[in-house]
Amino acid sequence: MIALDDTDRTILRALAADATLGAGALGRSLGLSQPAAWRRVQRLKDAGIFRGQRVDVDQAALGFGVTVFLGVKLATKGRVSLEDFERAVTAIPEVQTVQHVLGAFDYRLRVVARDLSDFERVLRRRIMTLPGLGQVDANVLLSEELRPGPIG
């Protein structure tokens, strides 16, 4: 684990908010030179702090107005391997996230759809045909606030 100072934490917060910030902009906001800011960012990258850069796609702008979280319990774990279920579920384009979890369900899925009738189509034709599927519980997302999480 790398030791972080206040400047490192400020850089992480800034990049979590806007990953496109360059070293020059970061340096100006922190009172550092561009090379000093670049070195700090590179040090964080080399330490494995960053897993990558992503584009935050606005699903609603693409016409996907409904997000549903599904809790999935497999019927019998012995008959179908977890890998078979995971392979099949990750092939469904509307499934954005597949999380193997501990608790009441075996998996938690984040599914997007154009509207509720489109979600019903995805549920009936794709989700309900998954190998080993048992119980499914749905929660429709009403609102969401994304937080960067704790830094250092």
Rank of each mutant, 00 (worst) to 15 (best):
V98Y: 02
V80T: 15
L44S: 13
F105G: 00
R126C: 09
M128C: 11
L109V: 01
D46L: 08
P35L: 01
A60S: 12
R9E: 14
D8P: 14
L21V: 06
L74C: 05
G132M: 05
A14T: 11
L21C: 06
D8C: 10
R40Y: 10
D6T: 09
D56K: 15
A91L: 04
A16Y: 00
F69G: 07
R13L: 10
S81M: 04
V72L: 06
V57E: 07
R54Q: 13
F105E: 08
K73R: 15
L32A: 00
T90V: 02
R114D: 01
G78N: 03
G52L: 01
D56T: 04
A17M: 09
A113W: 00
G63T: 01
V68P: 00
Q59E: 05
L102G: 13
S33M: 11
V89R: 02
V57Q: 07
T10G: 02
A91T: 07
S143K: 15
A16D: 05
D58A: 00
D84M: 06
D118N: 00
L30Y: 06
F105K: 10
V41M: 12
D5N: 15
A16G: 11
D6C: 05
D115A: 07
L142S: 15
D84A: 11
S143A: 14
A25W: 05
R126V: 04
G149K: 08
L32Y: 07
D84Y: 01
K45R: 14
L26A: 03
E94N: 14
M1V: 12
I92A: 03
K77Y: 08
A25N: 07
V57T: 06
F50R: 08
L146V: 14
L62R: 00
L146D: 10
R126H: 13
A17V: 11
A17H: 13
A19K: 03
R39K: 15
P150F: 14
L15S: 10
N139E: 13
A91G: 11
G52Y: 04
A138W: 10
A113R: 05
F105H: 09
D58N: 10
L12H: 09
V80P: 07
A47N: 08
E145V: 13
D115V: 06
E94R: 04
D115L: 08
V55D: 13
S143P: 02
G71M: 08
L116W: 08
P93G: 08
G132C: 04
R43Q: 07
P150K: 08
L4G: 05
V111Y: 01
A3N: 13
V89G: 09
V57L: 01
L4M: 12
A91R: 07
R54D: 14
L146M: 10
R121T: 14
A88D: 00
D58Y: 10
M1R: 12
L123A: 06
L62P: 07
P148A: 09
G78F: 03
D118Q: 02
T76V: 11
V111D: 06
I92W: 07
D137Q: 12
L21I: 04
V55C: 01
F69N: 04
L26Q: 03
D118I: 03
E145H: 12
L130F: 09
R13W: 04
R114L: 03
A60L: 03
I11N: 00
H100I: 13
D118W: 05
Q59W: 04
V55Q: 13
L109H: 04
T7G: 12
V72N: 00
G27N: 03
